[in-house]
Write a protein that binds this DNA or RNA. Structure first.
Lengths: 220, 220
DNA sequence: ATAACCATTTTTGCATTCAAATTGGATCCT
DNA sequence: AGGATCCAATTTGAATGCAAAAATGGTTAT
């Protein structure tokens, strides 16, 4: 197994919740599960720690990072900034073919909205956001976006949607597509920021913090 | 030596140019220079590779990453986005004391400008930009900013300044301080973006790409 | 009964070791 | 002579082994 593959596998386990937030990560167990020795696993853990997915406690091993409300807010804020930037750049660089593709996915998404198929809706939604990032043509931006969204993905795509909120989101997406078609970078960036801000409020309101109370109580 | 210290030391060697861009990194040599064994060094190299500072060639070792013009443009673009976001957030959250501190550093910077002391000028400049990032109160943002700016630092703070350009930069910094004092987030973000865009043009014009032609010629 | 202390066990961190891949060079063939 | 091929030497990638630190459990003393 290649180094990047080990990192990917463990990252997936963390993001899927197979290793739940806050859980200790016993090296030996993971090693035999992945059929590798401790050395490459430890290398992967250090990389994931640098990404913020794993917390290293010197001489006391590693644990899956836990997101507080503050972390979530911070991540969403940065995500807003990155998407806003991507929106502006995308409007300068996106091709007509790419716009057409986004439009197609958007239409499919609206269809799924009509069917109240949340899973498929979210898939299209994510595809659109990623298409905008890609269209920005900036690999550095793509990399940071990927890393930031990975950490909030569970919250972002698991939070239940109220009918009211869902309708608004679809409406915002209409505006997103429209701005993209008009290549209105400034407009697009504003819409994207509002869109993300709403999403953030929704998520935070749902109380998706990954903090466990007993950890706070250690001092008692 | 702690893991983070190893990462820091090697990172510093890369950023200072002690290990020049494109240079191969022989593990054994670095090991004895740092007085550690290969295991912790390799862990550090993987982390730095994830940061984009090192390029890993499977079974063929690692080399210091080299920035192309495109990389530089991409990094500056993202940096613009991050600073713009920081500017907006900072205006919402910065304290009067912090503003006063920025104002003081700004005054010192203007003084250094008067003395044509480029080194000290750059020090103050960097302090101001970092203060704005810090004032945004978003550790995720700070982390990404740190990582992005580290990679362009040499270009950013080494490019020679024309008198014309230097005067403009100082003028822009006046506007930055002014917007901060007025807590005009939108205004500040615009000024910061323009400021960075000018810096980027300056750097790219100076041709600071770290590509070496003979590498392109390998296919011949 | 509770708290503190000590021995045991487990786990981490790093050095060493071993196998596999790559590189450089010498040899051989055309 | 030029080029391909094979072999030695170096270097990488991963597993194992060893020392140190921390968690655990049991015992004792208050």
């Amino acid at each position: 197994m290649l180094h990047e593959e080990v990192v990917g596998r463990v990252r997936a386990m963390l993001l899927d919740g197979e290793i739940p937030p806050g859980a200790r990560i016993p090296e030996r167990d993971l090693c035999e599960k992945l059929q590798i020795s401790r050395t490459p696993l430890r290398e992967a853990l250090k990389v994931l720690a640098a990404e913020g997915l794993v917390q290293l406690l010197p001489n006391r091993g590693s644990r899956a990072a836990r997101l507080t409300d503050k972390d979530m807010r911070d991540l969403f804020e940065v995500c807003q900034g990155l998407e806003a930037l991507a929106g502006e750049l995308a409007c300068e660089r996106i091709t007509d073919a790419e716009i057409a593709e986004v439009a197609a996915v958007h239409a499919a998404m609206v269809q799924h909205y009509g069917d109240r198929d949340l899973l498929q809706y979210y898939r299209c939604n994510r595809t659109i956001h990623e298409a905008i990032i890609t269209a920005a043509g900036n690999p550095v931006l793509s990399g940071l976006y990927e890393s930031v969204t990975a950490r909030i993905r569970r919250a972002r795509y698991v939070t239940p949607m109220t009918p009211r909120r869902w309708a608004l989101a679809v409406q915002e997406h209409e505006a997103i597509l429209n701005a993209l078609q008009r290549r209105d970078g400034v407009g697009l960036s504003h819409i994207l920021r509002a869109h993300l801000r709403h999403k953030r409020e929704e998520v935070l309101q749902a109380g998706f913090a990954e903090t466990e109370p007993q950890d706070q109580a250690r001092a008692s």
